[in-house]
Every structure is written in C-alpha cells, then in structure tokens.
Design a protein around this nucleic acid. Structure first.
Length: 470
DNA sequence: CGGCATGATTAAGG
DNA sequence: CCTTAATCATGCCG
C-alpha cells in the first residue's frame, strides 16, 4: 500500500510537477482565481495542490484538517481524484496481473480428498450426534466390528464436528471481515482514490488469506485423523493379554468341550460377556466376540499342534469343571467305575497313563504328526495297538458322552449333563490317546461332530453305558 | 536380551 | 461368513 502510494506520487510528480521549487508549505494556498489563460498557470495550480497533499502529513493535525477541508472543496478535486484513480488502477492492474493466478494448490486438493475419504468433510450425516447415535446403535445391535470401531467412529465424529464448526466460524469471520473492510473502503473512497476494482481485489486478498487459514485447519484435521487412526491401529495391533480369569473361563469352556470346541455364536457372546465381566476388576479390556473366536482359533490350532504341552492344563480345567459341575453324581460314577471289574480302578489307570505320557508323548506327537500328515487308516493300528485298544474301550463312550454333553450342556443340569461332565473329566485325564482320537484323519475336529461315523468302527457291539461302566 | 506365550492378522479353502 | 495354518508383533519371564 505504501509502496503503491509512493509510486503514484512519483509518477504524478514526474509528470506534472516538473521543475517545481519547494517553498515552505504553510498556509492555505489561495483558491486561485486565475485559472484562465495560460496552461503554465494551471500546471502551477495543480502542482501546488499536489504539493500540499504531499506535505500534509508533515503538518500538525489542525493544520492538516483545515487544509484537507480546503482541498476537498477545491473545484479541481473531482478531476484530480479521477486521475489518481485511473493511475492507481493501472498500477494496481499491473501488480495484480503478476500475482493473480491462483493455482488449485495440489496440497489443498490432497487434504480435501483425504478429508473426504476419511468421511470428515463429506456429506454431514444429519449431524454428528446423530451419526454417533447411529454408531452406538450399530454397536448395540451386536455387530462386533462396530463395537470394535465405535470408539474410533465416535472420535472421528468428534473431529468432524470440530472441523465443521471451525470451518463455519472461519467462513463467518471471513464474511464479516470482508464486509467490514468493504465498508471501510467505501467510506474511505470518499476521501481517497479507491476504485471498485480495488475493493474487489481487497476482497480477493482477504479470501485468499482466509482460505490459507482454512487450509491450516484442514491440515490439522487431517493430522488429527491420522493420529487417531494410527493410534487405533496401534492399539489394535498391540496385544494385551487377557486377564487370568478370562483365560480361565475360556479354557474351561475349551476343555469341557474338547471334543467339539466350536462355540456357537451365542456361546461366544456369552463367553465374551462373562470374560469382560470377570475382567472388570482387572484391566478394563472388554473382550469381544471376535476375540473369543480368535482365542478359540488359536487354542484349537495350538492344542492340536502340541497336545502334550496342554495336558496339564487340560487336566486342570477338566477336573475343575467336573468338580464344580457335579459333585455327588460324579463321585457316584467314579465309584461305580472303580468298582467295575473291567476297569478296576479308573483313577489308577489314569495315573498309569499319565506316567505313560512321558514315554508315550514322543510317540504321541509322532502319532499326531502322522495323523496330520498321512492317511488315517494305515498308521492307527500298527503304531499303538494296545494304546488304541485302550482308547477304544474308553473313548468310544467318553466320546459320545462328550458329544451329548456338548448338546445338552448349555441348557441343562440333568444327569446326562453330569455324566458328560465327568466323562469330560476322564477325557482330560486320558489325554494322550483321547485327543488324537477325537481328531479326524486330518487332525481336525471337523470329523468329530458326527458321532456315527466315528463311533461306528469301534462301537458296533458296545453301547455308551457298557463302555462307561466297563 | 533371548525365548517362549499369546493375541491379532492374513491367506487359502469351504 | 466360518475355519485352519502360518505368521506377525508384542508381552512377559528368567
């Protein structure tokens, strides 16, 4: 602005102030009646006026005020004013021409695109609160992915809200400031050479300024989104162990459903609920259904991979469930088993097998490997004839019992329930042989759920009861 | 710090 | 969608 003025002055003085001597600028120059004949006089006149204008700032306020009034009343003022406007416009145009084009700014576009992609600057979904409510509703609806991401979404909504309010604020401020400046300029245009184009230009400058501020806003919003996102991903990737109680519950379920450790959706939900409830005293990690699924997936594969390693655990949990589930019935069955002739003492036998475990474990893992690798029919017999027989005699029953238990367990505490539980317990203790047996030829559990197919070979003559009692 | 345990993720298959 | 199997990345413990 100052430069511009100086330039104008320079131009004016260059053109019209040729050879003007400086005289003490005091007092109002006479309003000059002799505008008449000679052009030299007119030039002199204009030069005087200009000189007064230029020196007006050197004078005291009162003097300047007075002089200003005088100049305003000068009859040549309109003409001079228009000339000044014209010159200013020209210089202004030339200046503007150099800086006018305003490239779409790739960075801004990138930010816009990202905000759009992130759903921040997109169509406002009926207000942030509504979106949050929708997210919450979806979370409550049971879709676990929504549960996992509801937090993220809530935060994103928050960001979006802030972004929009800020954007609005900026817009409003921009408009206010623009009108303010325009009013000022309009007002000043009465005393200062200001053309409409100049006002327009000012408005443009203001808008550019504000849009740069907007870009900052967008940038920081983007940053916030990125931070939120990365933190969320980190949090997701970062593993936090479940609490002891949660794993206990999961293990309990797993080992009590060892023959078919595939919890249904409802079971998973229940487990998730139970775990997060139990966990409440510990870290506030809520365990979701998908986490339960993960857990079971991991557990199945890891159990299958190295059954020996999990025996202790299996015993522990199977025993626990058996004890907690049934008391008298379990004892009764135990006794009956102990007294039965064919299986003189199940307790002892189990111990035997437990001892065998060490020696049999290598065999066992071998067996498992063969199960997983080779065909099921060829190896099962040669590898461990006696073991397999034991397995058959014991497992045929226990297997089916477990199956029944799986089906019944969720509802009932009937006698069969109790039996299945105890049988499950036995299964747990009979680990080395039972487990691979319950796996199908490929080492998976998937063959197990169909009792008929599995039980037919060794269960032709025997029934559940006979096997259990024997 | 090394090694194992463990939750999460991914790819492939149904 | 589910599963399995492999893998990743971290947590934890000696």
């Amino acid at each position: 602005m100052m430069e511009e003025q100086a330039r104008i002055m320079q131009a004016l003085s260059g053109v019209t102030l040729a050879g003007h001597s400086v005289q003490g600028g005091m007092g109002l120059p006479p309003p000059h009646g002799h505008e008449g004949t000679d052009g030299d006089g007119r030039k002199q006149d204009i030069g005087d006026i200009l000189h007064q204008i230029m020196t007006i700032t050197d004078q005291s306020l009162d003097e300047a005020q007075a002089k200003k009034h005088g100049l305003n009343c000068h009859r040549m003022k309109p003409a001079l004013f228009s000339v000044l406007c014209e010159i200013k416009e020209k210089t202004g145009l030339s200046i503007r021409g150099a800086q006018e084009q305003d490239p779409p700014d790739p960075q801004l576009m990138r930010l816009d695109n990202m905000l759009l992609a992130e759903g921040v600057s997109g169509p406002e979904k009926g207000g942030g609160s509504a979106a949050a409510a929708a997210a919450a509703a979806a979370a409550g609806g049971g879709a676990d992915s929504s549960i996992e991401h509801s937090d993220y979404r809530a935060k994103l909504t928050q960001i979006r809200q802030i972004y929009h309010t800020e954007l609005e604020k900026y817009e409003q401020a921009c408009n206010e400031f623009t009108t303010h400046v325009m009013n000022l300029l309009r007002e000043q245009s009465r005393t200062r050479p200001i053309s409409p184009k100049e006002i327009e230009r000012m408005v443009g400058i203001i808008h550019r300024k504000f849009s740069s501020i907007q870009m900052q806003l967008k940038q920081s919003t983007c940053e916030a989104v990125m931070i939120l996102r990365s933190r969320f991903l980190d949090a997701r990737r970062k593993r936090r162990n479940f609490s002891k109680q949660a794993t206990e519950i999961l293990n309990e379920y797993f080992y009590s459903h060892l023959s078919n450790p595939y919890p249904s959706e409802e079971a998973k939900e229940e487990l998730a609920k139970k775990c997060s409830i139990t966990v409440s005293q510990g870290v506030g990690t809520t365990i979701t259904v998908s986490q339960v699924s993960n857990w079971f997936g991991n557990k199945r594969i890891r159990y299958k991979k190295n059954i020996g390693k999990f025996q202790e655990e299996a015993n522990l949990y199977a025993a626990k469930t058996a004890v907690t589930a049934t008391h008298a019935v379990a004892a009764a069955i135990h006794n009956s088993q102990a007294n039965s002739p064919t299986t003189p003492n199940s307790g002892f036998q189990m111990k035997d097998e437990e001892f065998q475990l060490d020696s049999a474990e290598s065999k066992n893992s071998l067996l498992t490997n063969m199960f997983t690798a080779g065909s099921s029919a060829s190896f099962s017999l040669p590898n461990s004839g006696d073991m397999f027989m034991n397995m058959q005699s014991l497992n045929g029953a226990s297997y089916q019992g477990a199956q029944v238990g799986d089906n019944v367990q969720s509802q009932g505490d009937t006698i069969r329930h109790a039996i299945s539980q105890t049988v499950g317990y036995n299964d747990g203790l009979r680990h080395p042989m039972y487990s691979p047996h319950s796996l199908n030829g490929n080492g998976g559990w998937h063959g197990a759920p169909t009792p008929s197919s599995v039980t037919s070979p060794n269960e032709g003559p025997g029934s559940v009861h006979s096997d259990t009692s024997n």
